[in-house]
Design a protein around this nucleic acid. Structure first.
Lengths: 231, 231
DNA sequence: CATGGACAACTGCTATAGCAGCTGCCAGGG
DNA sequence: CCCTGGCAGCTGCTATAGCAGTTGTCCATG
């Protein structure tokens, strides 16, 4: 309540997350990277001793993974890693495209000026990265673009669902969307056009462009089959 | 391995669910019905003793509710019921419309003939229910229509997400979509047209019609604001 | 009167122990 | 030889106990 502001930075997000959270991320990573094969059984006790923790956090992690659709629990039987084939990945990609579209529509309605400016900066960065053919930087910028847009919606359900869907990317052995050298110019144009729709505060247009962007990106990455007569 | 089939029906889904599952449903119901007000804190121990069980299943239920966006947990502080205002409900409605649209598209590609026949029977039932102005029966048929369609997609992630979204219906004090006497004829026509698109195996058309159906239904129920210049 | 610090009563979180149910093996009866 | 019943060894699931961290109160101190 005193006059002068205290000249310290707030503590960074603590590295020591709860064991349940860490177990959740570790298991999810192991699944999408293939260390835990589909069909293999996961025992709470065995996994707990393997991770050096108790069985409770492991159980909690398995429950969350079940809600994500990555494992399936047979009551009193066991927990097995779910089968996720190419067609399932394609379905998830279409769901993701739809959700990212809704996120873009909501962002077009609510997004603040500073966020728009930040997106503009990212697009500028994409332009230079594309000219330099720096796929690494482009992937990073792409992630930030989508993260800022989704964060601007302020919708926790949407953000969490998209985060869960994004986890499947590694499963298809694909890099971040839009980072393939081949479609870098396309991705750049698409991001710029999405930004333009956001600036114009046109929800329907932003949604259509974002959705098309994700669908095309997934198609060039081989997750989705080429469209036949869509639209 | 012997010749004759055993003349018994398989056991129905057991009524005795796990305590964690029951706690999850109970808490979710209490939240959407308003018994647990937004902003109120939920203690694992207190809630456990109130339910007559241990703290572990309650904690598990709270975790799942957190993933659903219904509660928010502050580490080492407590768990509070999330605020869900009208604009948040509207956002969830738009997400739901998009997901149901994707479900319809997937169903149009995969749906078997018997499921189509069942949907046709439901639409016929809707016709008679509409003529009799039986809102109760129509709500039941409407639920079955969407459940069959979503089940036909075979996508667990999609089904679970939509189930979580459907839980919010009671929060808006609204009955099942399409059961309002006013829009019964509209809902009937829309369901019939969706079925036609499914029969034609036209994913894009089925998606557009389903999405429009959900959006219109949510609009007439007051969840969404009337569109200004969409489509 | 204002202020700061210690203490008590919470909280989420983790570990341990033990329950009931399922599975697979294996011996014993047909 | 085949089949059936019991018995370990697993599994998920629940309860209890105790940890560390947060919060609010109350008293001693300036």
């Amino acid at each position: 309540m005193s006059a002068g502001a205290i000249p310290v930075e707030p503590l960074a997000e603590e590295e020591t997350l709860s064991l349940g959270e860490r177990a959740y991320r570790r298991l999810r990573e192991s699944i999408v990277q293939g260390t835990l094969r589909p069909g293999s059984r996961i025992s709470e006790r065995r996994m707990a001793s393997a991770l050096g923790i108790s069985a409770q956090p492991v159980r909690e992690a398995l429950r969350r993974l079940e809600q994500d659709g990555m494992v399936v629990t047979l009551p009193r039987r066991g927990t097995v890693v779910a089968e996720i084939g190419p067609e399932r990945l394609a379905e998830l990609g279409r769901i993701r495209a739809a959700l990212e579209g809704v996120a873009a529509a909501l962002a077009a309605e609510r997004m603040a000026g500073e966020d728009l400016a930040e997106l503009a900066g990212i697009v500028r960065g994409m332009r230079t990265a594309t000219a330099a053919a720096d796929t690494e930087a482009l992937a990073e910028l792409n992630e930030r673009f989508h993260a800022i847009l989704q964060g601007a919606t302020g919708n926790l359900f949407l953000v969490k669902s998209l985060e869960a869907l994004r986890a499947y990317d590694d499963l298809g052995r694909l890099r971040a969307l839009g980072s393939t050298p081949k479609d870098m110019p396309k991705a750049l144009r698409e991001h710029a056009s999405i930004l333009a729709a956001l600036r114009a505060r046109d929800p329907a247009l932003a949604e259509a462009r974002m959705r098309q962007h994700v669908l095309r990106s997934l198609t060039t990455n081989g997750v989705l089959a080429p469209p036949r007569r869509d639209r």
